[in-house]
Nucleic acid binder design. Structure first.
Length: 953
RNA sequence: GCUCAGAUGGUGGAACUGGUAGACACGCAGGACUUAAAAUCCUGUGCCCUCAACAGGCGUGCGGGUUCGAUUCCCGCUCUGAGUACCA
């Protein structure tokens, strides 16, 4: 029978499903291997050809690892909470659970027909209560934990309470809010229960706090920093503004350093690690307090006196009005400070502005506000700022320094205040030059200070008081000691990363298992989990502006306490899902100890690089937290990460002729001739174009208006224009895998996706070569059949040539798969099949081994041939990968390329046993080579055994 | 601006540690089979010169360098893509 892919593929997909062929047991003598794909968000559009690329690669790898004797866990599931389903619900009134389920069904059908070896018994859906119960449970663990810097890990909140009981707040080294109180054990004992709760909240790893958030009015929710790109929402591209709100946050900053250090221990692509490093943004430096010289009124009395004495924030307020604290990475240049700058949004600007300067300052703030976030970031050239009228004192030399505001200082980083050192920092230099502030040289190695700043750390310090003559290292050490002793600062590490906002004012997400009593948050009881998402009438905020959950009727804890109305963000469910896969059916724990002890971590994780600073960072954070609590084994969740490239769309165009008046006609010009006419360019559905040739009949049928279209052809064909763009519906360049699978089968589709090029490289989708892959599989099938398409193999001793072809491919595939070079394997399979076809190989043992080697790529056809070869049905997946024997590849002769002065001239067959002297003689006595040499005396002969002979004349 | 990745025939790409550049496939051209077409099979196919063969010249973004020998290593530049953006 000819190669009938449809029957074969259906048959084996059914067999694998019915026999649970890929079910992975958590108990096995085999070594474990965990291959994970980034699970998809099931969108309404279904899968396009770009989605399965990574899944195919990971499936090839999983199947290969099984053949190599590993117990492989290769699961799949759905990240099924999220905005699109909710937006759709708002538009149509359909419950997101309903549309999500329908989308999942489509995804499942599409995934199934590609023949993946997923263990579906371990499927997870983040929107299932059985799943999000454990997401809520982990939230509760975070709420009940604090970060102890003493032990450098998270601990149960009870250990903090013990410390408070024993010694009060003294000696506590924790990652916490800035406004924690100092108290004695006796104070703690006298605190009311509410006061205790309020204080503990400042230490919890997930906490409620008034903070400036990214508010997206169009989406009606706050967004995390990684969900905002250049001032616009990542999803939908809506404007985002800053707003103060009471918000749940995750104290990811507690893990900043561990997240940074961990990067050195994992095998991830360097760009991703670099992005995480930048995101964490560690800077080592010092904080320094500059005393404020109060602006004085004309009669000499202090203008600002004991401000805000009745203000709630009086503690901060008082300190603030004594000092301005700056963070600097160059404390060694402190003697070069000639001014101080605050961010325009800095909360004390108004109070530190003198009456005289008030108009200028207010004008400047108004100007800055007008500039959008984007303008402000884009325009880094223009120098701007305004003088407050106040002065501060440089603690190093008691110099009086003017206090400015400028928008090059960001409120959100460090303390929102900067010391200006024009000689050492280019921005400060530009500022000082523009406003005529002094530029003070601080090192004898600084050059060209009339032109630009010189940030050198070389040389000895000058003009720098007590650090004069010291080098960089000595100066920093001395200054840091001095700051500490004087109590005006200290060595400090600053991170760019902020705590992660954890609440979303949306419906379709995990409810936060918290209720409020007297304005304070409390966890619900663990036995009450899951806190199920309540039904609501419509998926919009309430009239009073509360999140959609505010619509739920009678939704109160124990009938009387308000629940938290925000839901968790999209990344909650995906920050631990790889553990749930290990033990997906467990009703008692999020994962059993046995399962974690066996599977430990993910050995190979394949997914897109767009999750670099979102999912991949949050997952590492939760993983470290779970490790601190002893719930999991490994410090890092994903040992090796591969980013598959993006599949871009390849759009096709037709050129519609335009008449004299500029009106569109019904005539279309082939791409090569379009310059001779006046035309307009239109997208055409790529599914009616083959190899850039338009199927004109299908084009006429595509739309009514084209029914009578006429064509100006070249060589009898209509050639379409081509451009690479994002794959999207509106560009008519979306290719659905279903179509290709129906036409060529899953095995061809899998191999073609791999054949396209290196996995990590982005590339446009192009079906031009798929015929070649299909022809290859047919040729492979024919190896096992005679001319009448009858199955026919022979039992005989394989020939040397057959063994050589086989062992070449055994080695090649093994090498390629281990280094994730899947495209090169496909070419090599073609070579192997071409060679065996030429050899007219019908040898059973050779072909059987070839079936095993090819099976990770084309599992259906191989499973069919495996059973035709007489093996038990469906056992191929656990066959043993053939053992490579180098002896079969040994050659006794090699066609040496002979080059003269590095230019290849000819090949010469020589025995590989010959040594350098013998080769030299053979080469020089060859008449053809003598002809090339033209009697010139060879100066030198380079000989590399088995590689090359190079004659230098 | 900074960081990273990349640039090889008409196309996708191969060449793994410096050793025959262009494997494999697509496309194209020619041929076989066919009444014809499709499918299939065979042959050719980097560019230039040449009727053609032989021979030759040029060729891995550009310009240099190291080397017997460079797509591979080093220096400088151009372009493309991605990330990031006044982070003190």
């Amino acid at each position: 029978m000819d190669y009938q892919f449809k029957e074969i593929e259906q048959k084996w997909q059914k067999h694998w499903a019915e026999n649970q062929t890929f079910k992975a047991d958590s108990k096995s003598d085999k070594p474990k291997y965990y291959v994970l794909d980034m699970f998809p968000y099931p969108s309404g559009a279904g899968l396009h050809v770009g989605h399965p690329l990574g899944y195919i690669a990971s499936d090839v790898f999983s199947r290969y690892k099984r053949l190599k004797g590993f117990n492989v866990l290769h699961p799949m599931g759905y990240d099924s909470f999220g905005l699109p389903a909710e937006q759709y619900a708002i538009q149509t009134g359909q419950h997101p659970a309903v549309t999500t389920k329908a989308n999942i069904d489509t995804y499942r059908r599409q995934l199934d027909q590609i023949g993946f070896s997923f263990d579906w018994s371990k499927e997870v859906r983040t929107s299932d209560a059985e799943y999000y119960k454990w997401t809520q449970w982990i939230f509760m663990r975070l709420f009940n934990s604090w970060y102890n810097l003493e032990t450098d890990k998270a601990e149960d909140i009870s250990t903090l309470i013990e410390k408070f009981n024993a010694s009060g707040s003294a000696g506590i080294r924790a990652v916490c809010d800035e406004d924690t109180q100092s108290f004695l054990p006796s104070d703690w004992a006298n605190f009311t229960s509410e006061e205790k709760q309020a204080e503990l909240l400042k230490y919890r790893l997930t906490y409620l706090k008034e903070s400036t958030v990214n508010w997206c009015p169009a989406l009606g929710t706050v967004l995390a920093n990684d969900e905002v790109i250049g001032g616009f929402s990542e999803r939908g591209g809506y404007p985002v503004e800053q707003k103060k709100m009471m918000q749940w946050s995750m104290r990811i900053t507690a893990y900043a350093d561990r997240l940074l250090r961990g990067l050195d221990t994992i095998d991830w692509p360097e760009p991703i690690k670099e992005m995480q490093r930048n995101w964490i943004g560690k800077s080592v430096g010092a904080s320094v307090k500059f005393k404020i010289e109060r602006p004085k009124t004309e009669d000499g009395s202090l203008m600002i006196e004991n401000h805000h004495s009745e203000d709630k924030t009086s503690d901060i307020g008082h300190q603030a009005l004594d000092y301005i604290e700056v963070f600097t990475t160059r404390v060694d240049t402190i003697f070069g400070v000639s001014y101080l700058v605050l961010a325009p949004e800095h909360e004390w600007v108004a109070e530190l502005t003198t009456d005289e300067q008030r108009p200028a300052i207010e004008n400047y703030i108004a100007q800055t506000k007008k500039k959008s976030e984007l303008d402000r970031m884009a325009d880094t050239k223009t120098v701007s700022g305004a003088f407050t009228g106040s002065y501060v004192i440089n603690p190093a030399n008691n110099e009086r320094l003017p206090l400015w505001i400028a928008d090059y200082v960001l409120a959100g980083y460090g303390t929102g205040a900067v010391m200006g050192v024009p000689s050492g920092d280019q921005r400060d230099f530009a500022f000082a030059t523009h406003f005529n502030l002094p530029i003070i040289q601080v090192s004898d190695a600084q050059k060209n200070l009339d032109q630009q700043a010189d940030p050198t750390k070389e040389g000895k310090y000058i003009n720098s008081g007590f650090i004069n003559g010291l080098n960089y290292k000595e100066a920093v050490a001395k200054l840091n000691n001095w700051l500490e002793e004087e109590g005006i600062g200290k060595a400090k590490v600053n991170y760019r990363m902020r705590d992660a906002i954890f609440g979303r004012q949306r419906y379709w997400g995990e409810p936060i298992p918290v209720y409020f009593k007297d304005g304070l948050p409390y966890l619900i009881q663990e036995e009450e989990l899951p806190l199920v998402l309540p039904e609501i009438d419509k998926y919009l905020p309430t009239e009073t502006g509360e999140p959609p959950l505010g619509r739920a009727e009678n939704w109160k804890y124990h009938g009387k306490y308000e629940y938290e109305l925000s839901t968790m963000p999209g990344w909650a469910g995906s920050s631990w899902y790889w553990y749930r896969y290990m033990d997906a059916q467990n009703h008692k724990e999020f994962v059993s100890k046995e399962a974690v002890n066996y599977w430990k971590d993910v050995d190979l994780y394949i997914g897109g690089s767009e999750h670099a600073t979102g999912h991949l960072l949050y997952s590492r954070f939760w993983n470290k937290f779970l490790k601190d609590l002893g719930l999991v084994q490994e410090e890092e969740p994903f040992k090796k990460l591969i980013n598959q490239g993006m599949i871009q769309g390849r759009s096709n165009f037709v050129y519609r002729l335009v008449d004299e008046e500029g009106k569109a006609t019904n005539t279309f010009v082939s791409a090569g001739l379009r310059n001779e006419y006046k035309t307009i360019t239109l997208h055409v559905d790529v599914n009616i174009v083959e190899n850039d040739v338009l199927n004109v009949d299908k084009f006429k049928a595509w739309r009514d208006e084209y029914a009578n279209a006429e064509f100006i052809l070249e060589n009898g064909k209509y050639i379409c224009g081509v451009e690479v763009e994002k794959m999207s519906k509106s560009k008519y360049n979306v290719v659905n895998p279903d179509v290709l699978i129906a036409q060529y089968g899953a095995d061809t589709f899998r191999m073609y996706e791999m054949f396209l090029g290196p996995l990590e490289q982005s590339k446009p989708w192009n079906t031009n070569g798929i015929e070649g892959v299909f022809k290859f599989l047919r040729k492979f099938w024919r190896l096992f059949h005679n001319d009448a398409w009858e199955f026919s193999v022979v039992d005989a001793e394989p020939s040397k040539a057959e063994l050589k072809a086989l062992h070449k491919i055994i080695k090649k595939v093994q090498d390629d798969v281990e280094r994730f070079s899947f495209n090169t394997s496909v070419s090599s399979f073609m070579i192997a099949v071409n060679e065996l076809t030429d050899l007219k190989c019908k040898n059973r043992s050779i072909l059987q081994d070839l079936v095993i080697v090819l099976s990770p790529y084309a599992p259906h056809i191989c499973e069919e041939l495996w059973s035709l070869l007489g093996n038990a049905a469906g056992t191929l997946s656990y066959a043993a990968y053939p053992v490579f024997n180098a002896a079969y590849l040994v050659e006794d002769e090699f066609a040496y390329p002979i080059s003269i002065n590095g230019k290849m001239k000819m090949n010469l067959n020589l025995a590989l046993t010959l040594d350098e002297q013998q080769v030299r003689e053979a080469v020089l006595s060859n008449t053809q080579i003598q002809g090339y040499l033209e009697d010139k005396e060879p100066k030198k002969i380079i000989f590399v055994k088995g590689k090359i002979v190079n004659i230098v004349v």
